[in-house]
Write a protein that binds this DNA or RNA. Structure first.
Lengths: 221, 221, 221, 221
DNA sequence: GATGAATGAGGGTTCATTCAT
DNA sequence: TATGAATGAACCCTCATTCAT
């Protein structure tokens, strides 16, 4: 989406339908909160944090500007909640997959598939991008991502690689840099966000190519 | 409070010393321009384009706010000149290195060394980061980088890989994604800008590990 | 010091009295808009468009600076709306008066009275002055005034003079320049705005003197 | 000249021809001063005082910005000198003409011709306009014009009208408003500056029509 | 004298945040 | 609870004025 100018009047999902029976007061409040988070992600992704106007977030969410402040202390808290709400629930499932006992090659194959489906194909991709683009301005952001996501994944990957080395599935030297496994994922997200219009990158194939380097080329795709 | 950390009163190198014999008028004008560019890079790198105040750039460069406008049309032009001035002179040297006729493995080893010395060890690293962080908001930025830098590098790398495959130095499958060679470089820059305080990444070793994957482990590093 | 006289802290009519029951929200919004227009007219009339600070307009209107932008796109739009809001409603009444069937002399006498009461005695006088002083810098302003006001008045006056000539009330030669009837009105406004402190000009008498020239001296005033 | 956008690189009369023998140092200084005054009049006339940039004046005059300050204390002093330099020498000649002993009708006929030639056909017209447009913002301007020009002209005109009345050339009632004689002149200048593109006004004919009203229609055009 | 780079106060405009309804 | 009009601090950019050359 290289669009830089502002979209004006496209709101999120359903029209407000105020005063109708679509849920209890609590449910409606929660739905509003979600709508705001979704709208904020849209805007932050395109404009960046600093250049995003809460006015636009509110319009896109179909709420009034003041409503945002009923759910979030300020713009930065909204950003923080956004990152947590998108990434938080995901962390648990990651460790689960990595703890499996099947061969490393198979697990990493599953990881690629999972990344493409659950990250690259979803809004999580945008949050990952936001961490890269806003991380230096918001130390809590880099820290949150490192502590809650990266360190856990890397820990699990290190354990997995250790087992793979012990089984002779992989060369010992690469275990020093588990980041080598994640690098193509990050690069794929960034590449397509910046250069897709010039030269699109096939994310899954790209990641598999890196797996081929690590484990030797095999049957898959 | 969207103001993240904000450095206040550190100016560039030498104090102004108005009216002294530090160069001709033209020389001092050029020096000021450079000081502004350097200060802008500092600020843009930390705050991002949108959150950077030209006031801070001016203070850091040791000039008055209005002086910026003697050298650059507006904030975005300053940004544009910044990217061009840092990357422009570099583009030529890149192709020179990649055109060498020694074995691919050797060339890529030189590339790693060159990247560490000429990019990671310099302000160019910060400009690369800016392209990643601001590229979606400034289409000209992504386009400039793709046309002037990426496409040229990738073209040369592809040619190099082709020769390497023909000589049997490398497996044919990887030639499809020359980006695999650059991925560790980008990831290393981003990793250390975000997570160095938690877990620093040895850039050279990281890149060499990827080379080992491509060519098989060897003597170097 | 290009700041001529500058009135500082006199605001409009009533103090803000926020949160009190002075009208519905819509009424208060409209009242604010009017206050801003009135304040803008005051400032523009004295300082001219370019030298007027919106800060001063806001203070005089008793609102914050940002409030102006809730009602007007920018400074020039405020100016435009100001001219339209003051002159617009007046255009219709003009033609009505000129269409009367009584003798020309009587109609022009009524016109004088109407001008003194409805233009010279009101803010419309200031808008007329603004058209003279800012008309060259804002082509839309001169055009608006010519199309919406002048050409209509002149058309009606020409018709009226034609009838007067046919009835022998007036010499044919003057019909060529209906502007001769309006000239004293314009000159009176300008004279008193510039030289009243030295030598005030009796607007009604001045205009009647011109009528006397056209129709011959008679009973009135 | 309804042109609102700025003309960029058209300088006044002769190219600088620095270092050539076009006069003594004093002569060249005086020439520069004149060039600046001429350029200032051009710019002030089109943009108005407040919106005129001394940068543009300097460029149009073919001098550097700083040079203006060698001749004039500040922007307002430049404006003041401009008005004085254009109108000052003219005042004397006016009184001379009005003191003539020929019939009033003849004198006024000469005045019309003189106005068209010496005012409307010259830069003096622009200064008159500036007095109208900037007079409220600069009290000294209105005062200067009233004291040095208007009061003198009106005095002479009053005396002339008095004589004309005594000779029966004119009705006594009009002597009360000598401004009636000048009104068409002012209105003609303003009309053509604002509305010439829609409906040009023949200045000489317009003024003669007013004379015809005062003295009765006669031979002259 | 003449220059024009440099200055920095000032003004138009934006937008996060508040609060009366 | 939700609204959105109102606020005012902040920021980009301009331009009158200065001053070292």
């Amino acid at each position: 989406m290289p669009k830089a100018q502002r979209t004006t009047n496209d709101r999120a999902a359903a029209p407000p339908r105020r005063g109708q029976g679509n849920g209890t007061r609590l449910e409606r409040s929660a739905a509003r909160r979600e709508a705001i988070l979704a709208a904020a992600l849209d805007e932050f992704s395109v404009q960046g944090f600093a250049a995003t106007r809460l006015d636009d977030v509110a319009r896109r969410a179909g709420v009034a500007k003041g409503t945002i402040y009923l759910h979030f202390r300020d713009k930065e808290a909204l950003f923080q909640e956004l990152v947590r709400s998108v990434l938080g629930p995901f962390v648990g499932t990651l460790e689960h997959v990595l703890a499996s006992e099947v061969p490393a090659r198979v697990i990493f194959g599953q990881m690629v598939e999972m990344f493409v489906r659950e990250v690259y194909g979803t809004r999580r991709k945008d949050v990952i991008r936001l961490i890269v683009t806003e991380g230096t301005r918001f130390p809590w952001l880099a820290e949150f991502y490192y502590r809650e996501v990266l360190s856990r994944i890397l820990g699990a990957v290190r354990a997995l690689l250790q087992r793979a080395i012990e089984r002779g599935e992989i060369s010992p030297s690469v275990a020093r840099f588990p980041q080598l496994l994640g690098a193509p994922a990050i690069v794929a997200i960034l590449w397509n966000s910046l250069f897709e219009r010039f030269e699109p990158l096939d994310v899954a194939a790209f990641m598999h190519a890196q797996l081929d380097l690590l484990f030797g080329a095999e049957k898959d795709s």
